[in-house]
Amino acid sequence: MHEAVGRISQTLAVLRVLLVIFIICLAPVSGRAETVWVDDANPPFMYGKHGQVRGIYPDLTREIFRRAKIPLTIRAFPLKRVMKNAASEKVSVAGAYRTPERLKKYAFTHLIYVEDLMVYQRNDNAVPINNIDDLDGYVIGTVRGWNYGPRFNEHRNQARFEVSEAANDKQNMKMLAMGRIDMVIAIREAGNETLRRLDLGDIIKASPEPLFSYPTYIAVNRASSTTSLIPVLNRVILDMRKDGSWKKIVAAALSNPFLHTD
């Protein structure tokens, strides 16, 4: 009899614990708004326009945090400021590459996208691009403050090619069209959108295959309490991929009328 009562008491205790966990899961997981910064000039991924922050990464981030019930503020700044000041300002970054250096300051979610870095050249002066060795001896247009990965950095440090830095893809594509640089490295969607806006699609083309492909993440500042909720964010990211909402958000961001007006 005493054993049966003991088992019932244990069962009730477990049920009480499960009920508390269930109630916690139903409630907002954070009362403090998380601040996330993005690049303000990298359409269609992220950009600021008419006082609003738009693009694939802001739209995905908003839905991820909404489902996780975490209040969110998204702000857009020039990339150089984002990468230089985000850590000291104790804010997070959406659409970031994961590097050993950044792991010291940020905790990373599951990947939210994979960026293909293409090599853009003038149609009348293009050479085959199969790997990074094919960039040797040329002047390469890059975006100031952007990290193109360890292999690119290694070749750059060895001075195997010359780098010309600009504020954004738009400046680089203009330089390429005028023949002031030989190539531009840009993310496929962003590079193609820039060519469309500048009406340079008949002059400049992308390499058939990407030079590199890099996953991107939401980098949560380790000074933020949200780091403890990364498992919640990761579960939401997986759910969004399973239920199809991830693809819908990306498609909507790519077709947003805001994107196609200057």
Rank of each mutant, 00 (worst) to 15 (best):
Asp202Glu: 11
Tyr214Val: 07
Gly149Leu: 15
Phe152Asp: 00
Tyr217Glu: 10
Gln52Lys: 13
Asp124Leu: 00
Gly31Lys: 10
Ala223Glu: 15
Asp262Cys: 05
Asn85Thr: 10
Asp40Gly: 01
Glu34Thr: 13
Val17His: 06
Ser228Trp: 11
Ile230Asp: 02
Gly179Val: 10
Ile140Asp: 08
Tyr214Glu: 09
Asp243Phe: 13
Tyr113Ser: 14
Ser92Thr: 13
Leu79Asn: 02
Arg197Ile: 02
Leu72Asp: 13
Ile230Thr: 06
Gly141Trp: 15
Glu189Asn: 08
Ile237Arg: 06
Thr73Arg: 09
Ser224Ala: 05
Gln171Trp: 14
Asp136Lys: 05
Gly55Phe: 06
Val184Ile: 04
Asn221Arg: 07
Lys104Cys: 00
Tyr217Ser: 06
Pro231Cys: 04
Lys104Met: 06
Leu195Gln: 09
Trp37His: 02
Val220Met: 05
Pro71Tyr: 11
Asn130Met: 07
Leu15Gln: 10
Asp40Cys: 14
Ala223His: 15
Gln52Asp: 10
Ile181Ser: 06
Asn157Pro: 00
Tyr106Gly: 06
Asp199Tyr: 07
Val163His: 02
Val82Lys: 00
Asn234Ile: 07
Lys205Ser: 15
Ile24Trp: 05
Val17Pro: 00
Leu200Cys: 08
Asp199Val: 13
Ser164Pro: 00
Leu238His: 11
Phe65Pro: 05
Lys80Asp: 06
Gly145Tyr: 01
Ala186Arg: 01
Glu165Ser: 04
Ala159Trp: 13
Ala219Ser: 08
Arg241Gly: 15
Asn153Tyr: 04
Tyr217Phe: 13
Ser245His: 02
Pro231Leu: 06
Tyr148Thr: 06
Pro208Phe: 13
Asp169His: 12
Met175Gly: 03
Val143Ile: 09
Leu15Trp: 14
Met83Gly: 00
Glu165His: 04
Arg196Ser: 09
His260Cys: 02
Val20Ser: 07
Met118Phe: 07
Ile237Asn: 04
Met183His: 12
Met83Ser: 03
Ala159Ser: 15
Arg16Gln: 06
Arg54His: 14
Leu229Cys: 08
Ile56Thr: 09
Arg235Val: 01
Thr35Lys: 08
Ile204Thr: 07
Asp134Met: 13
Ile24Ala: 04
Pro44Asn: 08
Pro128Asp: 03
Arg98Glu: 15
Lys105Asn: 02
Thr35Cys: 04
Arg222Asp: 03
Gly48His: 00
Lys49Asn: 14
Ile249Phe: 13
Ile56Asp: 03
Arg32Ser: 14
Val20Lys: 08
Ala4Asn: 03
Asp39Met: 03
Val127Asn: 08
Arg75Pro: 03
Ala96Ile: 10
Gly137Leu: 15
Lys69Glu: 10
His260Ser: 05
Leu233Ser: 11
Ile23Arg: 14
Glu154Asp: 15
Glu165Met: 04
His2Val: 11
Leu72Asn: 11
Leu233Pro: 13
Lys69His: 07
Asn123Ala: 10
Ser245Cys: 07
Leu72Trp: 09
Thr73His: 08
Ile56Lys: 05
Ile185Lys: 10
Glu63Trp: 07
Val143Ala: 01
Asp133Lys: 14
Ile129His: 01
Thr109Pro: 01
Phe65Gly: 02
Pro208Glu: 03
Asp116Tyr: 01
Val236Glu: 09
Asp182His: 12
Leu103Met: 12
Arg156Gly: 02
Glu3Cys: 01
Thr61Trp: 13
Trp146Val: 09
Glu3Asn: 07
Ile21Val: 15
Val82Ser: 01
Gly55Thr: 06
Ala107Met: 12
Pro210Lys: 08
His2Cys: 08
Lys84Glu: 13
Ser228Met: 05
His110Val: 00
Val17Glu: 11
